[in-house]
Amino acid sequence: MNKGRVWKYGDDVNTDVIFPGKYTYQPMEPAEMAEHSLEDLDPGFAKAVQPGDIIVAGKNFGCGSSREQAATCLKASGVAAIIAPSFSRLFFRNAINSGLPVIELAQGTDDMQKGDLVGVDFAAGKVEHNGNIYSFPPLPPEVLAILEDGGLIPHVKKVLSK
C-alpha cells in the first residue's frame, strides 16, 4: 500500500483558492501552475509539498469554477491522491481527466491530521490510517479506464489509435 503524508484542509475548498483566477487565462505549463497551488488557502503549500503527499479535506472539495488547472496544478505538485467525503462534480471530472486519483471516503477523514501517514490502495478501494482500514466504492469501469491510462488525453489517444 502506497503511503503519503497528509495535508489537511476544511470544507468547501474552492477552485479560486486552489488556483487563482488571475492566472487562469495566461498561457502556463503545469510546472508553473504547481508554483501557485493553493496560493490563497495555504501559501506555504507549493514550496513544501513533496511527491506522494496526500490532500485530505472536508466536503465539496473543488467547488466553484470549471478550471482544470485546479486539478492540473495539484497533480504537477506531486500530490498522489485527494481524499474527501465529497467533491464538486467538475473538479472530480477534471482530476480523473488529469490522472489524479480522487477518493470519496465517507468515514475517517475527520481523524486524519496534517503530517499523518495515510496509505492508499486505489485498485482495492482501501485507505489505511493509524491501523484503521476504510473502504471506498470503486469508480465505474469507463471512468477507471481514463485514470489508469494517466488521464483523458492519453486515454483518448489510445482509443483512437485502436
Binding site: G64, S65, S66, R67, E68, A71, L90, R93, N94, N97, S98, G151, L152, I153, V156
Partner: peptide
C-alpha cells in the same frame, strides 16, 4: 468549459460545465 454553462437551463436546455481536456476531446 465554464461552470456557469448551467445558465441555458433557463431555456429548457440541458446545460453543464466540463473541463478543458474534455472540450479538447
Amino acid at each position: 468549459s465554464d461552470s456557469h454553462t448551467t445558465t441555458y437551463g433557463a431555456f429548457g436546455a440541458f446545460a453543464a460545465g466540463v473541463g478543458r481536456s474534455e472540450m479538447a476531446v
